[in-house]
Design a protein around this nucleic acid. Structure first.
Lengths: 224, 224
DNA sequence: ATGGAAACGGACCGCGCGGTCCGCTTGTGT
DNA sequence: ACACAAGCGGACCGCGCGGTCCGTTTCCAT
């Protein structure tokens, strides 16, 4: 039987004191820079910002992809955790929109790392795919609860909600300088789209229901 | 008085026959590859695909950016032209949604070049900015007409429509493999958002009105 | 046909990236 | 205090990119 490498490797052989400190610094620096400026920031700059040499970075993370995965999975887990907390909220609709707005809404544009990782190219990475699945699972629970309460239209799935919110928020960044405040308005439009229960504009018949598959599958990992 | 270099340099000193032919080939190859695979394709690959050497490419377009600008502005102008044609359509609402769907909707994913150029980074380029302005002008006209007819909500501007459509369409690409057909559903959701006249979910007060500025300005270039 | 300008194209360059290596430094168990 | 392993970091490498150069080829006016 193999050791459980892959996702969730919380256990790591104890590091020397300074090594542990440097690892922390690297993660902190990488998180900040990736979130602020996207995943294309160079490893050299990250090492410099952390106050260590490039060799140290590559000893902790054998590849830039490993570093990215570590940071991104962390962000995804944190977000999923906040989502689970929201499941206890009274208003199911507000719970969903709150998590959407606070995590990907206009409030913070400092999530480029997470957004860029939500790309099919990164799903090749096992860790990121696991994080993605966990996130979709939580989102699916929130969406289902909101639908059961009649807070949002019934013909959309978690992926629709995620896709729309991500897309609109990311695009808003490119228009902020032309039109400050557009992110907030766009988010309101998403809300309008998801809340429209008039059924005057039903979404095309599709795999929305069938597609809950991946979300469901991830739910297993989600509960404790 | 300076020669009118910058946008719209339709006139060019006559080229030798073979040179003209190679230029055509380059533009054709670049258009296809940029649209299909995005602006990050290498100049070498484009030259090869066009059946010419790299030197030839750089003689026609002194910089990769010049080549991109040429292709992108062409795409933008064509799109703007189709938009102007739609102004004659009977149903203002359908005219707007038709142009949105046919140009950036699910029908064709082959517009990555145009999408990537709709980024603030590319607005530094004068030609692209001009094309962008022209496009926004046309879109503004279509949006206003649709609003006058009560086909879409009155509290959004051309930029809102563009931003939302672009964002949703681009994000859909990243989820197509997980959920085939998501692009179509997302477009329906955009339609729902823009069509919701219930005012139950008004967009935040903002510069939507003030921001027609850039659009209006571009309208000057648009007519004739 | 032919001379010469225009165009060609691939060898070549510099740059910045991710990743490696190894002589030196530093923490730690005894 | 000391020895030795664990850790450090910057010089170094290969690669692929955008962009340049110049010897060769092709077109076209005469």
């Amino acid at each position: 039987m193999r050791d459980n490498r892959g996702a969730m490797e919380t256990e790591r052989k104890p590091l020397r004191a300074d090594a542990e400190r440097n690892r922390r610094r690297l993660i902190a620096a990488a998180t900040e820079m990736f979130c602020e400026r996207g995943l294309e920031v160079g490893v050299g700059e990250i090492a410099e910002s952390a106050g260590v040499g490039r060799g140290t970075l590559f000893r902790n993370f054998p590849t830039k992809e490993h570093l990215i995965a570590a940071i991104v999975v962390e962000r995804m887990s944190e977000l999923a955790g906040r989502g689970r907390d929201r499941m206890a909220d009274e208003d199911p609709g507000e719970a969903l929109f709150a998590i959407l707005e606070e995590s990907i809404g206009p409030a913070q544009q400092t999530d480029r790392a997470l957004f860029e990782a939500l790309d099919d190219a990164w799903l090749e990475n096992d860790d990121i795919r696991a994080g993605h699945a966990e996130l979709l699972g939580v989102l699916d629970a929130l969406v289902s609860r909101a639908q059961a309460a009649g807070a949002i239209r019934a013909d959309v799935g978690a992926i629709d909600v995620l896709c729309m919110t991500k897309g609109v928020c990311e695009a808003s960044r490119h228009f902020e300088h032309l039109d400050p405040g557009i992110a907030a308005r766009q988010f309101d439009l998403v809300r309008a789209a998801l809340t429209d229960t008039s059924n005057r504009w039903p979404v095309r018949a599709g795999s929305a229901a069938a597609e809950v598959g991946p979300g469901r599958r991830s739910s297993e990992q989600l509960l404790s």
